[in-house]
Design a protein around this nucleic acid. Structure first.
Lengths: 148, 148
DNA sequence: CCAATACCATACTAATATGATCGGAATAAT
DNA sequence: ATTATTCCGATCATATTAGTATGGTATTGG
């Protein structure tokens, strides 16, 4: 359930675009520079995010990328799932590896894995990019409370 | 923050030993068979767990492994940390990769990463192996509530 | 037009982590 | 002594990750 570096790059890129809302397209080079992301790699990531409908692109001189959704209605969980796949501590809690799940010894752990998955998903799904911007401006003192 | 397969093996092994409490040593072959774990790999894992003080070993005929701590006072978090290292969605929240953390763009995310880490750790640290045995006997209907 | 700038697509590679195995030595119960 | 078992160090194999390379195609300002 680790968030891959690629995904962290994606999140930072989206965050950067969120903070530049309404300022026209931002180039890959600009985002890469500000967020310290390998430019070619970022190009790859942004293309993928575009195919997922999270960003739009403008070609040509003074082109770049724009957020295609307001930061308030875009949450972190959507990006993480899109880049890294299902959220959860083990494959077992992600509906596909049934063979693995059916293992006798695994049954005792299923409840715990589910609780972890739900707790993590709750945090990611309830954190929008607007929240991230707000939180940063509040110098990171805010600590939310999440119950499952 | 994914729990590696190796770690899942370790947890299942400890769980198996927990359920056989007071029944003398259990051999690697026996545990491997019941829990469907590659035997040689399990051997490696149990040795490691022994060095961590979680289990004891008896050599020779009718030897094997025993839990060295009562299941009630051994929690899942301890095993996961021992096998997989610090719990957390990114390296950044584990006090060592300061260079990575100090990155300007990462600041906005720190609060979220911390909340995820704490939520996950809470579940793991509050689940003992006795809980797992109880939960299984209760046919897995139990769903706990965890707040941070 | 045309040259600069940006996006697009695929393939490739290097490094790292993970998962698992091997051969044999030490130990202890019978 | 024999046999079942743990113990030890090394090694292999594979998958994933992270990032690069190459070679385009589209758009726009001048």
């Amino acid at each position: 359930m680790n968030v891959s570096r690629k995904c962290q790059y994606a999140l930072r890129a989206i965050y950067e675009l969120s903070s530049r809302l309404g300022a026209g397209p931002t180039s890959v080079a600009e985002i890469a520079s500000v967020q310290a992301i390998p430019p070619r790699f970022l190009e790859l990531i942004l293309r993928q995010l575009r195919q997922g409908g999270f960003v739009e692109s403008r070609r040509g001189v003074s082109g770049g990328y724009l957020l295609s959704v307001p930061p308030r209605s875009l949450n972190v969980g959507a990006i993480i799932r899109f880049i890294d796949g299902p959220i959860g501590p083990v494959q077992c809690t992600n509906r596909n590896d049934e063979a693995f799940c059916s293992l006798e010894g695994e049954r005792a752990f299923m409840g715990m894995w589910s609780r972890v998955r739900d707790a993590v998903a709750a945090v990611y799904d309830e954190t929008t990019f607007q929240d991230l911007i707000d939180e940063k401006n509040a110098t990171g003192q805010y600590v939310g409370s999440y119950c499952i």
